[in-house]
Design a protein around this nucleic acid. Structure first.
Lengths: 120, 120
DNA sequence: AATCATAAACTACAAATGTAAATTAAGGAG
DNA sequence: CTCCTTAATTTACATTTGTAGTTTATGATT
């Protein structure tokens, strides 16, 4: 599976938020990170090399890219890896840990159940 | 905060599981990883350099170490970082994502609520 | 057509990481 | 006391990552 670094992930999040984007769009979207334009361009290039994004069109000398990775699929996979690493693969263990530290209440879970019901 | 790499984390998990351990204990505990002994020793050394573990005693030329990092605190912090990165800081968003992909059911959440009640 | 602005590409470079070999030092065997 | 074993320490080295400067190529301007 494609390995995406933290900095690259920030760029991916931009592509996940739009159907397509050019370098400048990404630079704009990540302005609050205070990265140099070249830094963003490097990250885009690396994502392209990793085949996480691809060029969809060209306008003058500007390229437009789009994500080749399914956002939810990727996030689920990464989440599972994470939970494997820290909580021995048990979502419940993680949530119990959160609950124990008061990061997650009974009410949060109840609300969530309602939301899930709503989705079905 | 101390930054622990994936490989180092495996070693930390061993220390979190025992009050103290020497290099050989860790090598044994991680046998299934098929790492060379020296690899494990390097990781122990790096964790020591990072002050994630410390020597607690010496027997002959063998050192015993113990974790200096609180397991739950560390895991919560890392989990929060992770959720920030992928789910914009929302535990609920993550759980909804899991639910959407059938990785988490209403029943799981109900069971969890019971467990949390049990803990109070 | 010559020049300029700038997007894209290439190069750079230190720190972190995975992975382990080589070297050193110290306790135990003879 | 000398030598062997082996734990510990040091050194190694390619890859990834964060971060950005330098060079090139190309469309726009005069």
């Amino acid at each position: 599976m494609i390995k995406i670094s933290d900095a690259e992930l920030e760029v991916m999040q931009v592509f996940w938020g739009k159907k397509e984007a050019n370098s400048f769009d990404v630079i704009e979207a990540l302005k609050d990170k205070n990265w140099s334009d070249n830094t963003v361009r490097t990250l885009i290039k690396r994502l392209q090399a990793k085949k996480a994004i691809t060029i969809v069109k060209q306008e003058g000398k500007v390229y437009y890219y789009k994500s080749l990775i399914n956002e939810n699929e990727y996030k689920i996979k990464e989440s599972n890896n994470f939970i494997d690493k820290l909580y021995n693969g048990s979502v419940s263990d993680m949530l119990l840990c959160f609950a124990k530290e008061n990061k997650l209440s009974k009410k949060d879970l109840e609300d969530l159940i309602k939301k899930i019901d709503g989705e079905d």
